[in-house]
Nucleic acid binder design. Structure first.
Lengths: 209, 209
DNA sequence: GACGTCATACCGACCACTCGGTATGTTTCC
DNA sequence: GGAAACATACCGAGTGGTCGGTATGACGTC
């Protein structure tokens, strides 16, 4: 069964979970919270999920699939130049910073903080989701490297992790400050770094590392 | 009463809270957990703290004070050049990535993720701690800017937030991957970016932004 | 009539917090 | 100096509410 043919109640529960967990955290959200948000009864919940932890794992996967198709359909893929596609990704991430933190923030980053030591299955699900998202960036990074910085010593994968780290960390500051301004500013720095990395006139700076 | 003259039991409870919350998250840690870790009774806990939330606020402050003096005493402050001091900070952060994630990870980043919407007092305490840590970096950033990039359009504060975002985000990946390797790699990218920002031969790249 | 999809009442473990106490100082006042 | 009065630190068995999970039955649909 693919994600698209989930039963409607189950889908509503999963979507509700994304919202509630992102705003209250995992441990603090109760099953009743999710049922209320989804307008579904508890009996229905336990018909579709074995346990709260089971929901978390499925919610993480649901999140990954939704965001994957969300980014797949974005415009920035159309650019011919791989560097433009990469910078387009960063710009796109900046452009979707609307509403409150729970709206634009990453479920997996939130979830894993609470569960990495105590809930191995959830940690694994978060790992898979985040890694898949990074993997989707790799072809563009590799292509841009081949074209603009073939001699560079850093790996495409390392760049992918760096990009995601900036995003995840910036989300924390969005929560602290209750506004996305610092996210935008950090993404501007990230964008500048990528431009510098892929501009040919700075190979000298690489030697210092 | 200053922080240094806390009663021993209270100090043990605060230190235990730092450990337990960083490994299990805030909502999932019970007061009994903390008492056991601190080898202190529950009665003693409620003698020193009004509530669990009260502990969280005090733990955040305790964390800020401890880390502040920890960084204050580090060697990198001795460098003459402000840029060296800044890069020294980054290197120092990389050098303390030992043990498991709960050991080197930031309490405030973990705490705020769970509480920013539901516990205003805790969110504020996290904000104050993180802001104070960034403020401590500002003089060096400003001095480095004055010396190496006086024309730059970015602000020192923005750099401070960017540095902390990279760190906080990298910690999330340390938890996902259960090892600090990606943190080190991201810090290497951060270091390279700072070097590029403060090298005189890239003012042209600034105009693209 | 059997299966999938719920709805409702309920259970019991857990957990933040209370409360009546003890033990050990410390101050006050004659 | 010493007794009374008070303060601080601590103890740990409750308690009341919450929450994950269960039991049982109803309703439709094939």
């Amino acid at each position: 069964m693919t994600a698209t043919e989930q039963h409607e109640s189950k889908l509503r529960l999963l979507d509700a979970a994304l919202d509630v967990i992102r705003s209250k955290g995992y441990a603090a959200t109760t099953i009743d919270d999710i049922c209320q948000e989804a307008a579904v009864t508890k009996g229905s919940f336990f018909h579709h999920f074995k346990s709260k932890d089971d929901l978390a794992v499925e919610a993480a996967r649901h999140w990954s699939e939704s965001t994957q198709s969300f980014f797949d359909n974005a415009e920035y893929h159309k650019a011919e130049d791989p560097l433009d596609r990469l910078l387009g990704y960063v710009d796109f991430r900046a452009s979707i910073l609307n509403g409150d933190a729970p709206c634009y923030t990453c479920l997996l980053g939130t979830l894993v903080q609470e569960t990495y030591e105590t809930h191995p299955a959830i940690r694994t699900a978060c790992d898979e989701g985040l890694s898949a998202h990074i993997d989707a960036l790799l072809p563009d990074i590799e292509a841009a490297k081949l074209r603009y910085a073939p001699e560079a010593t850093w790996s495409a994968e390392g760049i992918g992790y760096f990009i995601q780290s900036v995003l995840q960390g910036a989300f924390i500051f969005a929560k602290v400050k209750q506004k996305p301004d610092t996210v935008r500013e950090s993404l501007a720095h990230l964008r500048r770094y990528l431009q510098l990395l892929f501009s040919s006139d700075q190979q000298t700076a690489q030697q210092q590392n």
